[in-house]
Amino acid sequence: MRWLAFTKRTAKEIILDPLTIAFGLGMPVALLLLLSAINSGIPEGYGPSNFKIENLTPGINVFAMSFLTLMAGLLLAKDRGSSLLQRLLTTPLTAVDYIIGYMVPLIPIALLQGVVCYGFALILGLSFTANIFLAILISMIPALLFTSLGLLLGTILNEKQVGGICGALVTNLTAWLSGAWFSLDMVGGAFKTIGQILPFYHAVEMQKAILHGNYSGIFIEGHLWVVLGYTVVLCVLAVVLFTSKMREK
């Protein structure tokens, strides 16, 4: 249970950084409001179906989770730059303890993102069904994916680089290539192919399927397996790279 002591400390660090949490929670709410307002101005039968609240919410929720990459990456990169980690590396903590310690405190944040996102969507007209709870639950898989990606980047990049790559690149890639704003079919070609190779689109489609009660839909195009595969690979890579960095120290 050594990881628990480290987890508590990480959780406190996250709580003491309310700006990042506010971004992670506030951004999806603002986007839901904006895109719903745009959608309300489009006559029925015209415009993209993506902006309908039942299609928009899973996309926005996945987009919000890209901020977990930023949070996890910044935490680890900041620690790597401090001598606190140097001290901790001389303790019996293992690489897995560290990764768990960084990952676990972000799970409640991801849950909160789901609750806020779907809660707000209900206010904006989403029909209440038990599928909302299932959608939030299954969103924990992409939450782990984004957290693992953050830990991977935080292991190899410094704080400034993490800010740039996670804050700009990952969030934008998630927004464009997940099909959250516009269908990948609208652009087609290489854009669609790249979108389908990356996990973001599958994370959104998986959540959409659950929300619409189409449970077997999570297996269409291998949505679940792609997201799970990326999550496992990124998590293992984060542990391996962190161990290697520890040895370098």
């Binding site: 480290f6 400390r9 406190k12 401090s82 001598s83 001389t90 019996p92």
Partner: peptide
């Protein structure tokens, strides 16, 4: 080890820092 630079969690209190280390050990 007490490294050259002050190796503490700056956002935590002295007690919390000590509790964290106790838990890690």
């Amino acid at each position: 080890i007490s490294p050259q630079e002050t190796a503490v969690a700056e956002n935590l209190t002295a007690r919390e820092n000590l509790k964290m280390m106790a838990g890690i050990y």
